[in-house]
């Protein structure tokens, strides 16, 4: 799934109230204008995506929730599935040691992305927007990592981090085991993720900054506002739709965190994340479908918290 998806939502959410003022006159006219073929097109345009979303997202999600109350090794028909109630959940919370670090790491991931990567990306965007000398170069350099997949980023940073052959240890003359030592590896992974996320946020924000009316900034300067004041009092509030997009992308990228740690050590030994635990239990020979589904359901619940916050914000925007 593309992280760009929610881009659409806040924008339409904004336009709707404006269109709303014409709704009274427009509605009656629109109904009359729909011809038979138009109607078919509209029905298809609604039905096809609905079927896809329900079939590929809702049904598997519901199946996962149902499977989380069972014990099944993924082999054979539905008759082999044993319902065991909440046992998978009690096991997750009581006797599954990797669960607690996984939740902590997911939250840490979110916090670091929110506190470090996103503000840094915004900061770079503002700097580049100033049309400094060589800003094209900085822009390209900072954006370059975004083109790479996280799996590839894992490999690239391996060359920097490697204990015996890595650049960092060679330059500093140390022997830190960045990917192996659980004291370090989560930070090493976070650094590599931020390296990519900063460029992503920067580009999004830069696009937004280009759209801010220059006269607003001029007016602020006329009134004697400093650069910092201009940004926080004028530009930042005007950029509200982009801010929401950036916020949503930060949250989504944190919850999606998987590929990088999987490449490093398959999410073990200090790099546990909920997504890797789900994969370890379901994919492969282990095939603890029920137990893995229970983990996946917990992950869904955590995601729902953030999704509801996001929807509440967007809907409140709508009502305004």
């Amino acid at each position: 799934m593309s992280p760009d998806l929610p881009l659409v939502a806040p924008q339409t959410a904004h336009r709707q109230p404006r269109q709303g003022s014409h709704a009274g006159a427009g509605k009656a006219g629109r109904v009359r204008r729909l011809s038979g073929s138009d109607r078919i097109v509209v029905v298809l345009m609604v039905a096809v995506p609905t079927i896809i979303v329900v079939g590929l997202i809702w049904l598997p999600a519901i199946a996962s929730v149902l499977l989380s109350f069972t014990n099944w090794n993924g082999i054979g028909g539905l008759a082999d599935i044993k319902v065991i109630g909440l046992k998978n959940y009690t096991d997750v919370f009581t006797i599954y040691p990797p669960f607690k670090p996984a939740v902590e790491h997911n939250l840490l991931w979110l916090v670091v992305m929110f506190v470090v990567a996103t503000p840094l990306g915004i900061f770079f965007a503002v700097l580049i927007d100033k049309d400094l000398k060589g800003s094209r170069f900085y822009q390209t350099a900072l954006y370059l990592p975004v083109v790479l997949s996280l799996a590839l980023i894992g490999f690239i940073w391996q060359l920097m981090y490697s204990r015996d052959q890595g650049l960092i240890n060679a330059v500093l003359g140390t022997q830190v085991d960045f990917y192996g030592d659980p004291k370090w590896n989560i930070w090493a992974a976070l650094f590599a993720t931020c390296w990519r996320q900063v460029g992503y946020v920067m580009l999004l924000y830069l696009a937004g900054l280009k759209g801010v009316d220059a006269s607003l900034k001029e007016a602020a300067q006329m009134d004697g506002a400093s650069e910092v004041q201009t940004f926080f009092r004028i530009v930042f509030p005007v950029m509200r739709p982009i801010n929401i997009i950036v916020l949503v992308i930060t949250v989504i990228e944190s919850l999606r965190a998987f590929d990088l740690v999987w490449v490093i050590n398959q999410g073990r030994n200090g790099l546990e994340l909920l997504a890797t635990l789900v994969t370890q239990n379901i994919v492969g020979e282990a095939s603890r479908i029920g137990f893995g589904s229970a983990l996946a359901t917990l992950m869904l619940l955590i995601s729902l918290v953030f999704i509801s916050i996001y929807l509440t914000v967007v809907m409140r925007e709508d009502e305004r």
């Binding site: 040691p97 030994n269 239990n281 492969g284 020979e285 282990a286």
Partner: peptide, 12 residues
């Protein structure tokens, strides 16, 4: 069992 070896013994 493969599920025991991979999900319990490796992390342990």
């Amino acid at each position: 069992r493969p599920d025991f070896a991979s999900t319990v013994m490796i992390p342990s």
